[in-house]
Amino acid sequence: MSPPAHASQIKTRFLIISDTHSAVLSTTTPDNVPFRPPLPRADVLLHCGDLTMLGHLHEYEKTLDMLGGIEAELKLVIAGNHDISLDAPFYRRRGQFMHGLKDPDESIPQKARDMWMGPVAKQNGITYLEEGVHHFGLSNGARLKVYASPYQPEFYDWAFPYHRNQDRFNAPHEATPGADPIAENPIPDFPAIDVVMTHGPPWGIRDMTVRDKMSVGCEHLLRAARRCRPRLHCFGHIHEAWGAERVSWKLGEKLGSESKDSVEEAEEVGVREDRMVEERAAYVDISTGGATPLEFGKETLMVNASIMNLRYRPMQGPWLVDLDLDSQ
C-alpha cells in the first residue's frame, strides 16, 4: 500500500534526545560538548525515555525543567527502564528496594504520573505518551501520527520489561512464529504511523553492546517496524550504540520465522563531529527538499539518540531531523 498520491507534504523539524538520566542543560558545559544550551529550535521534540537515573520524584522535576527550556511547539516524552516509578506494577514489586525505603510508599507511581500529566508539564508544552497510537495537529499544518512504547526486553530486572520470547508489538496473527504474543497495543501496519518512539532498539539496528559485543535489540520490534515502515523510528537505551541508520526494508515477500530478515540494507548516517558540536545536534534532512529524500514505505530513518555515553556522561549529541508529514 502506498500513501495517497494527493497528500501534500509539509517539511517538519524534529529534535530527538534520549537517556538524559536527569542531566540538565548547563551554561557551564564545555564548548566541545554538543548537549549544551541552547539546543536547536524544532517543531517537535522527542524524548525516548530514561528521563532519570532511578525514577525519584525530584529527578522528574529536574527533567521537566530541562525540557521546558527547549524551544519546540510539541514535546513528546516516553518513559524508559530507569524511570521505575512510572511503571506501577514494577514499582510495587521492586520500588521499595531500589529506592532504599524502609516502608513501601504506594503513592509514588501516581505522583510520578501526575507530574508528567499535570500543569507543570502542560505549561512546558510536554505530552507524556503511554503505549499506543497518538495523533497531533501542528501549527505548520502538518498531521503527526505516533506510536509510542516504553517497553523493552528484560534488562537486568529494570522497569517496563518483557521476556525475549514474548512478542509485544505484533498482533497474534502477525507475531513471530513460536513467540508468545502479548501485544496489548500492537504497532499498526503501513501507512498508519509517521514516527515510532520506543525506549529500546529493534534487533540489529544501533543495539550493539561494547562489553559483550552482542545485539540486544528486540527481533519482534524489528518485525513490527517492517510492517509499519514509519518515516522515523527513534529510541535509546543502549548508550554506546548512539547513531543513525537509513534502513531499506525487504518487501514483496511474506516474513517467515526470522524477523532478522526484514532489512534489505542499512546505511549508517555519517556525522561530522565538529559540525555537530557547533550546531549542538547531528543534522539529517530527509525531506523532499533535501539531497536524499526518504522514500516513505520503502525506507525508515532509525535513530539512537542516547545523550549519555557508556559512563553516564552527557557527551553525545541530539539529532535534528527534517522530514515530510502529510497535511491535516
Rank of each mutant, 00 (worst) to 15 (best):
T27A: 13
A171E: 09
G178Q: 00
I126G: 05
H199N: 07
D261G: 07
G125N: 07
P181V: 08
L45G: 05
E106M: 13
L301M: 06
G132D: 10
L320C: 04
R41P: 01
A7T: 09
E253T: 15
T20C: 14
L294S: 01
G68V: 14
D43S: 10
G118R: 10
P34N: 02
I205Y: 05
L25N: 07
D103Y: 13
V303P: 03
C234P: 00
A175W: 03
P4K: 04
G137D: 15
A224F: 03
G270V: 08
E184I: 07
G100I: 01
E299M: 04
T12I: 09
K250M: 07
G252H: 04
Y151A: 14
D65R: 15
M302A: 13
F190M: 04
K62N: 08
W242L: 08
A42K: 00
I78P: 04
L310W: 02
V195S: 07
D322F: 05
G49C: 11
E154Q: 14
G141P: 10
L255M: 15
V216A: 07
R206F: 02
K254E: 15
T292A: 14
Y147V: 00
D322P: 03
V44S: 04
S262F: 06
G55M: 10
H220K: 02
P34L: 06
T28H: 08
H220V: 04
I182G: 00
L251Y: 01
N304G: 10
A305Q: 01
S8Y: 05
E253R: 14
D31C: 04
K122A: 15
H82I: 12
H56W: 12
E267H: 11
K75T: 09
Y147T: 08
D19T: 08
H135E: 13
V321E: 08
M276T: 08
E184H: 10
F190A: 07
R223I: 02
P181G: 02
N165K: 11
K75G: 11
Q152D: 09
E71W: 06
T300I: 00
A291T: 09
S259K: 03
Y156K: 15
F97Q: 15
S2V: 05
V195T: 03
I78N: 06
Q110L: 13
M315S: 11
P172N: 08
Q152T: 15
E174M: 12
E299K: 03
T127F: 06
L310I: 13
G290N: 01
E130T: 09
S26C: 10
R226A: 14
P104D: 14
V24F: 09
G317Y: 02
I70C: 09
P161S: 12
S2C: 06
H99Y: 03
P191R: 01
A244N: 06
